[in-house]
Design a protein around this nucleic acid. Sequence first.
DNA 1: TAAACACATGAACACTTGTTCATATGAAAG
DNA 2: CTTTCATATGAACAAGTGTTCATGTGTTTA
Lengths: 119, 119
Amino acid sequence: MNEINELMCEEPGTHADVVGKVRESLPDDDTLYELADLFKMFGDSTRMKIMFVLMESEMCVCDIAELLGISQSAISHQLRILKQSKLISSRREGKNIICFLADDHVRSIIGQGLSHVLE
Amino acid sequence: MNEINELMCEEPGTHADVVGKVRESLPDDDTLYELADLFKMFGDSTRMKIMFVLMESEMCVCDIAELLGISQSAISHQLRILKQSKLISSRREGKNIICFLADDHVRSIIGQGLSHVLE
DNA sequence: TAAACACATGAACACTTGTTCATATGAAAG
DNA sequence: CTTTCATATGAACAAGTGTTCATGTGTTTA
């Protein structure tokens, strides 16, 4: 009888109520995509390494590349993406571009991830 | 003169010291890859939606699929991945498989992400 | 036991992503 | 102003990822 319930699998009870409430509680699509895009930044080991480095100290592009043993070009491409996500910022200092974390959220997000990974 | 310094870009000062210390502070590669793999789970909008739903209430596969308007097969594939990452668990209840968050880290990780996205 | 339902899974395909290679930009030093 | 060093960027390519479609497995109900 219930219109909503007709959409659901055959289960008795106050089932549709729960489904309805959950649907209302979902963030809008824009927020969901933004969130997923944010976490994508943490989902690549190169970017993760870069952020770990910058958690310890700000550093120029050249040094990040050599420290991690990754080509300058690859680092530069990733830095571009990280800047677009507002996770890191940079300033020029003479010939060098010094990169640093733009946000303390990086630390807390990685911290939560670590505590999951380390059981 | 300094062997380490020779690897670095031409910058004066106690530069090599910082680089050396940062290198030591980096987690081992296994941990880094595990971390990146963990965050990959949050980097897809379908999985993000599933986790948001399960943050509100445990739910069977069928309902998750219909609530989100995503095919049962797609949901099932994603659930498999999420289970492998120990982010969700499930139990059988009659014909249905009831899914639920396996870990409170999901809530805290998404929470941190949200507070970044919402400025 | 047969049919119906809930879910899982494999193959195929389109799409995305990260790296490399070559080259461009831009500041600084000679 | 020319060269050099630090960084950025575009094109191309390989590898990874998510969905669909078809079908398989397992559980309940008739």
